[in-house]
Design a protein around this nucleic acid. Structure first.
Length: 426
RNA sequence: GGAGGGAUGGCCGAGAGGACGAAGGCGGUUGUCUUGAAAACAACUGUGGCAGUGAUGUCACCGGGGGUUCGAAUCCCUCUCCCUCCGCCA
């Protein structure tokens, strides 16, 4: 959510930002109109209330002075004011709810240096690491390698839970668990993150805090009976950790990391990415979340992104960093880098991390503030998050890039201590 | 799942239709006293909206939402959360 005052005072900048985002539906003009109405109604209501408060006080005094007649006359007048107030409150309620709804549907303006383009065609590769692996045979895709090695079972996954579900089995399941642990340990031990085990089902308001609701409910699973929503990423629960809090001076920055399953409806066209585990309804992901002071936002984004990149480097996986263009930016992000890893079998760059700076956009929605100094007014924090990393896709890259002609796999040395030296699959 | 009891400022805790933004205590800040500290004493000590350059004014807020009333922390409805006992369970 944006600051309505900023919107009032910076109309041209706002218009320009919205144009850059190519989001024609963003109801920012409507929000500004409703804000006018809203403030007019507040003013009217308050002056009536002022009159009523004074009147009520007088009535009390009159009764105490045994002047019942005068009191009753006043009572009648106050009754009229009361119904006027009720009428204005009704109007205000409606306007306020439309206003809030409009505000919740206005996306975050992009940072100055985000590439401007209408869609993902405008994304820019800003750096690339590692050489693409070469093969003297035709490398297989993971949807062939996995079943051959008996470490991914698609058929039984589908039979059990439907399309886009799978079992990881044996060395496959173990690899995922080990990767998750290793990622967590690196973030905790080397980058100062605190591990969390967060709720994986949350209330609707938590989803609003991170910007998943109201606009993107169709991507989420929910228990309609009890108003529980399954998290599409740990970002949701972890960002809400400090909802409605005022953090004391010195508390920032706060770094958290959590490994959780993520649940997504993925209502993309039925055929797209249907094979394998590139796009599934349930996957494991290690997520980093930062709460920081506004001035440090951009450098925190850089160190966050690096914390994810380092993992890929140690896994010897070639990757590139992509700066997301304005038209492809998510609703809540002011700037975003995707990390894409090369998968030699499907011959594709796969997104395994997405690192974003939200500025105070989420903090406003979730009401997360901090006190810059003792006694100072609370201000909204900046939030950031990034995957570090998304798991099944990392497994895809490890299998496909490290395969040998006979279909066996040699895993990178970085995992040796976590696998008890057992780096061979198959 | 059943039966009860709760939710008041940073914390503890009173208040049971009007004098209540809310007693009292703790904590915090400042001052007096002191060589310094402690103690004692005194004053101050919540958040947000709206209007105003500003001093300031005004409105709202006693878990959330609705209602009754001229007037609600206080009465009614509803939701959420917490506690106790029973049942069930990892």
């Amino acid at each position: 959510m944006l600051d309505i005052r900023w919107m009032r005072e910076n109309r041209p900048a706002l218009a320009e930002a919205m144009a850059k985002l190519h989001d024609a539906e963003a109801p920012w003009e409507r929000a500004l109109d409703l804000d006018e109405e809203r403030r007019a109604l507040i003013k009217q209501g308050e002056s009536l209330r002022e009159e009523r408060n004074a009147g009520s006080k007088r009535i009390g005094n009159l009764f105490r002075e045994k002047k019942a007649d005068e009191a009753n006359a006043l009572k009648q007048r106050m009754g009229e004011i009361g119904s006027e107030i009720a009428q204005i409150d009704d109007q205000l309620r409606q306007v306020e709810s439309s206003f809030h709804d409009a505000m919740m549907r206005i996306p975050n303006p992009p940072e100055e240096d985000v590439p401007v383009a209408p869609d993902e065609e405008g994304n820019v590769v800003v750096s690339q690491w590692g050489d693409l692996p070469g093969f003297d045979f035709e490398p297989q895709a993971h949807w062939d390698l996995g079943p051959q090695l008996d470490i991914i079972d698609f058929e039984r996954g589908v039979a059990t839970a439907g399309s886009r579900f799978y079992f990881l089995k044996g060395a496959g399941a173990r690899l995922q668990r080990v990767l998750s642990n290793w990622f967590l340990d690196v973030h905790i031990q080397e980058h100062g993150f605190t591990e969390l085990y967060p709720p994986m089902m949350v209330r609707g308001h938590a989803m609003e805090g991170t910007g998943n609701l109201p606009k993107f409910g169709e991507n989420l699973y929910r228990d309609a009976e009890e108003d529980y929503w399954l998290i599409p990423t740990a970002e949701v629960s972890v960002t809400n950790l400090h909802r409605d809090e005022i953090l004391e001076p010195g508390a920032l920055p706060l770094y958290y990391v959590a490994s959780t399953p993520c649940f997504r409806r993925e209502k993309v066209s039925a055929g797209k990415d249907a094979r394998g585990i590139k796009r599934v309804h349930q996957f494991q992901k290690v997520e980093m979340v930062k709460f920081v002071e506004p001035a440090t936002g951009r450098e925190e984004l850089e160190t966050l992104t690096r914390a994810a990149e380092v993992l890929l480097e140690r896994l010897e996986l070639p990757y590139r960093r992509v700066a997301i263009a304005t038209g492809d930016l998510s609703f809540v992000a002011a700037i975003k880098y995707d990390l894409e890893v090369w998968a030699a079998g499907c011959q594709e760059w796969l997104e395994v991390s997405s690192c974003s700076l939200f500025r105070d956009f989420q903090a406003r929605r979730a009401n997360i503030r901090y006190r810059p100094r003792e006694g100072a007014r609370p201000e909204y924090v900046y939030t950031l998050n990034g995957s570090g990393l998304a798991l099944p896709r990392v497994i895809i890259a490890l299998l496909e890039n490290n395969q040998r002609a006979d279909g066996t796999i040699r895993l990178p040395e970085a995992l040796a201590s976590y696998l008890g030296g057992d780096l061979e699959i198959g």
